[in-house]
């Protein structure tokens, strides 16, 4: 823990080796977050890049009161949401049917649980993906989501319900449902 504090202090001073170490330590988990909130790998990489820039820029504001990892995760999520909001302004109409298509191919899932689930999430319509990630995985409440995405609370709830439905259908289609529930 003390070591982390030293690392944070180093980053606050703008030391490049401290920044590099911090990146090595936390980028895998944060990249996982970015992937969940992104449409594809490229977008996730962009988010990670932008998010880390923000982390290094704002690290002076971190007060050691909460979890540092939580703080970084929130920055990543906010970065992803910012990208989503910008994109959503330009493309307000979503072709939901495009996401309802069959997954089709029966890929050989070696690491089925996580990879498949990540893929399913990435295939959700963008706003459903945001709401589902925030609510189901990152533990935000509907009112928080409504505030962050600038939507009504009811919209958040209905988006979540739609997202669940889509995910559930796909899992059933793929024949994994029993396996998943059995676990």
């Amino acid at each position: 823990m003390e070591e982390l504090e030293k690392l944070i202090e180093g980053c606050k001073l703008g030391k490049r080796d401290a920044q590099a170490r911090l990146y090595r330590l936390y980028s895998p988990e944060l990249f996982g977050v970015c992937l969940r909130y992104s449409r594809d790998q490229t977008e996730a990489e962009d988010t990670l890049h932008e998010g880390f820039m923000k982390i290094f820029r704002k690290i002076g504001q971190f007060s050691h009161k909460g979890s540092f990892q939580g703080w970084m995760t929130r920055i990543m999520i906010n970065t992803a949401l910012g990208k989503f909001r910008n994109r959503y302004k330009v493309q307000p109409v979503e072709d939901i049917s495009a996401y309802d298509r069959e997954t089709g191919e029966n890929e050989a899932y070696t690491n089925l649980d996580t990879d498949v689930l990540m893929k399913l999430i990435s295939e959700l319509p963008p706003r459903y993906r945001m709401v589902f990630n925030m609510y189901a995985i990152d533990g935000y409440s509907h009112s928080e989501i409504a505030g962050m995405l600038e939507i009504a609370e009811g919209t958040s709830k209905s988006n979540l319900a739609r997202a669940r439905k889509i995910l559930q259908n796909k899992i059933i289609e793929m024949g994994f449902i029993d396996k998943v529930y059995a676990k």
Binding site: S27, E29, G32, L48, T114, L117, M118
Partner: peptide, 9 residues
């Protein structure tokens, strides 16, 4: 499955 899921960038 996905909370804390790590992917090396």
């Amino acid at each position: 499955k996905l909370e804390g899921h790590k992917v090396v960038p």
